[in-house]
Amino acid sequence: MGPVDIRTTRYDAPDAVRLNDLVQLEYVQRYGDGDLTHMDAAHFEPPHGLYLLIYDTDGTPVASGGWRSRGASPEGFQDGDAEIKRMFVVAQARGQGLARRLLAELEASATAAGRTRMVLETGLKQPEAIGLYESCGYLPVPKFGYYRHDELSVCLGKDLKPAPVADAAGR
């Protein structure tokens, strides 16, 4: 994987909307319907969230993903959670490590924002997504969110480790 151009954007920016439309089409193909989870651009505003796009060398957006802060709720979230949403790589850019790179950026930014656990919901009809997350240290967690009662839902999580703090001598 060569250098990539990762940019912070708004969830409702035109390029983000274009990729969101593509991921929704993929959900329809795999599950028969798009993701009905309530989403709002304000959910991804720093420091309570972040939305990123990856652009190829031609300036075309090829991957997206974001996280939003979550607190303890009846939907199964815990205080300190950062929920990953809309991780997606366009078909022609898959297999280049872009999702892994994007995930690392999301984890680092959530950690820097004080989040303690990264969580996500995917589905059994997305085995490549499950494989990516498991290979990055994500483990099954109790189901949460809109699809927590759906038999196809898979919820995964990973504890976020704060960056070590240097002492006065810079060690």
Rank of each mutant, 00 (worst) to 15 (best):
L132R: 00
E134P: 14
A110V: 12
G97N: 09
E128P: 07
C136E: 14
L106M: 08
L139C: 14
E105R: 15
A108E: 11
K125C: 09
L102R: 10
P140F: 03
T122A: 00
S109F: 10
K143E: 04
P142Y: 05
A129C: 04
G95Y: 00
E121I: 14
E121L: 09
T111Y: 06
Q126S: 08
T122E: 01
G131P: 07
A110F: 04
K143R: 15
A99L: 07
C136S: 12
M118H: 11
E128T: 08
L139Y: 13
Y138R: 06
V119R: 01
G123V: 09
G123A: 08
C136N: 14
S109W: 04
G114V: 05
F144C: 07
R101E: 14
S135I: 06
L103E: 00
R101A: 15
K143F: 11
Y133D: 03
L98I: 06
A112K: 04
P140T: 10
A99W: 00
T122H: 03
E128H: 14
L106I: 08
E105F: 14
F144A: 12
A129S: 12
L124S: 14
A110R: 07
L139G: 14
S109H: 08
G137L: 02
Y133T: 07
E121H: 11
L102S: 09
L102K: 05
G137Y: 02
P127T: 05
E121M: 12
Y133R: 07
Y138N: 09
G95E: 04
Y138I: 03
A108L: 06
G137M: 05
L102F: 12
E105D: 13
S135V: 09
G131T: 11
Q96G: 01
G97A: 12
P142K: 00
Y138K: 06
L132D: 01
Y138V: 06
A112N: 02
S109G: 07
A110D: 02
L139D: 15
K143N: 11
S109I: 06
T116M: 10
E128F: 08
Y133K: 02
R100V: 12
Q126F: 13
E128D: 13
G95H: 08
F144M: 11
